[in-house]
């Protein structure tokens, strides 16, 4: 289980790049389906650890944030000519699936795999 990181503390510091004061990283997020109004169509589970990505992608983008070549280029373009392009964003690099028991469009209750539901790792994209 991951430690919960308090998002509140820093949200006022976020700039246009969508990041906080920390470098791009995976953060805790437990989603309760009831909070999304989804208890009407999802039977199980009640919720899941979805995680999300957040943080800065600013120069220099080190190896540790898993940046693509395009993100490296875009970071430099933004640094030299900020009006041409924004900083790259902190976004999921790997996602994994989650099984859900739910009502489908025809009213049947089925168990299916929902791909790309959980953030496994983040990077600058």
């Amino acid at each position: 289980q991951e430690k919960y990181t308090d998002y509140n503390l820093s949200r006022h510091k976020r700039g246009a790049s969508g990041g906080g004061r920390w470098p791009c990283q995976r953060r805790s997020l437990y989603v309760k389906f009831r909070d999304l109004g989804w208890q009407s169509w999802i039977i199980a589970p009640d919720g899941y650890h979805a995680f999300f990505c957040e943080g800065e992608c600013s120069f220099p983008i080190g190896n540790h944030v898993n940046a693509t070549n395009h993100a490296i280029v875009q970071t430099l373009v933004h640094m030299y000519t900020p009006f041409k392009a924004p900083s790259p964003g902190c976004a999921p690099s790997k996602l994994s699936a989650q099984s859900v028991l739910y009502f489908d469009d025809d009213g049947n209750v089925v168990l299916k795999k929902f791909p790309k539901m959980i953030v496994t790792s983040c990077g600058c994209h």
Binding site: A44, P45, A97, Q98, S99, Y102, D104, L111, K112, K113
Partner: peptide, 11 residues
């Protein structure tokens, strides 16, 4: 959803 298998255990 997808029809991908194998299914993961329901939590």
């Amino acid at each position: 959803p997808s029809n991908q298998l194998p299914i993961i255990d329901l939590e």
